[in-house]
Write a protein that binds this DNA or RNA. Structure first.
Lengths: 146, 146
DNA sequence: TTATTGAATAATAATTTTTATCGTTTACAC
DNA sequence: GTGTAAACGATAAAAATTATTATTCAATAA
C-alpha cells in the first residue's frame, strides 16, 4: 500500500526546492488523499491545518511539485477543451516541455489495443494513448543551450 | 487525405440535431482547421463568416457535436488540473458517460510499452494510456433504464 | 545565534475559460 | 403558412488560473 516516504526536508533538498511549512503540510495532506484531487479539494483540506493559506499558494506549489518531479499530474491536457480534426485512427505525442500535441498514426505507434472488458467490469470503447516525451524542437533547443 | 464528407443536413439528420446556419458554418470551418483547435480559435475563424455569432454558441455547438458523435474531443481530462496520488505504475479508465477516472495497474492492462524514439524524432519518456469506456455503475444505470 | 538576502507567502486583482439566463429568432413538423 | 420547441445572441455569472505586490520567512554565512 503506502510506500514509506522519506522526510519532507530530504525530498526538498533532493529536488532543489526550499522546505517551507506550507509546502510540508501541503505535501502531507496530499499524500493522505486518494484518487485525483483538484487544487480546490487540496485547498479545502490544507485550510484545516493552515487557515491562513492562500489558494494561489496551493496552485503555485502544486505546479512546483510537478515541475520538480515530486508529483505528477493526471493529464497534460487539462487546459481548455480541444477538438480532434484528424479522422484517422491515431494517438498523441505530448511534449512535456512545450505541451505541443502531435498526432501519431495508430499503426506507427505499434501498440496492440482492442476492445474488451477490464477488471471491475469496465467496458472498453477505445484506447487513447498519450506518449509523453520531448519533441524534436525542444530537444534541439536543449542541445543548443549546452 | 480529406475524406469526402456527406452533406451537412444529412449529418444532422443522422445524429438527430437541427441543421442551423451557424452549425453548418461552424462545422465547415472546423473541417478546414488542422490540429487541435480550441473554442476561441474556432470562434475567431467563424466570426469571419458570421460576425454576429456568439462565443456561447460556439461552445454549445462544440459540446453538441461531441455528444452526438459528430466530433471528438482530444482528451476527456480538460477540466481543472488533477494530481496523481497513486505511486504504482498505472493507467486510467475514463468513463465516457460520468467522466470518472479509475486507476488500473499497468500489469492488469496488459499492453506492452517501453521508451523509444518515434517518427519525427520524438523522445519517449513514458506512456499514459486512457481506456475510454463505460464504468460498471453507468452500465447498471443504463440497464435499469431499459 | 544573528543578520542578511532572496525566495515564499497572503491578499487581492485580473485573466481566462466555461456555463447560465433570458428575450428574440429560427427550424421543422404539421 | 403556423405553432412550438429549439437555437441564437447578448450578457452576466461562475469556475479556474495567473499576476502583482507588500510582507514574512528560510537558508546561509558571519
Amino acid at each position: 500500500m503506502s510506500t514509506t516516504h522519506k522526510p519532507f526536508r530530504e525530498l526538498c533538498a533532493e529536488h532543489g526546492i526550499a522546505a517551507t511549512h506550507q509546502r510540508q503540510i501541503l505535501y502531507e495532506v496530499m499524500q493522505g488523499m486518494e484518487g485525483h484531487p483538484s487544487p480546490e479539494e487540496v485547498y479545502a483540506r490544507v485550510r484545516e491545518q493552515i487557515p491562513s493559506i492562500s489558494l494561489a499558494t496551493v496552485y503555485k506549489n502544486i505546479h512546483l511539485f510537478v515541475e520538480s518531479g515530486i508529483l505528477r499530474e493526471v493529464s497534460l491536457h487539462h487546459g481548455s477543451i480541444r477538438v480532434e480534426m484528424n479522422d484517422e485512427a491515431h494517438h498523441h505525442m505530448v511534449c512535456s516541455r512545450c505541451k505541443a500535441i502531435l498526432d501519431i498514426d495508430e499503426a506507427a505507434l505499434g501498440i496492440a489495443t482492442g476492445p474488451r472488458v477490464l477488471p471491475g467490469g469496465f467496458l472498453v470503447e477505445r484506447f487513447a494513448i498519450d506518449v509523453i516525451g520531448i519533441c524534436a524542437r525542444c530537444q534541439q533547443e536543449a542541445a543548443a543551450r549546452n
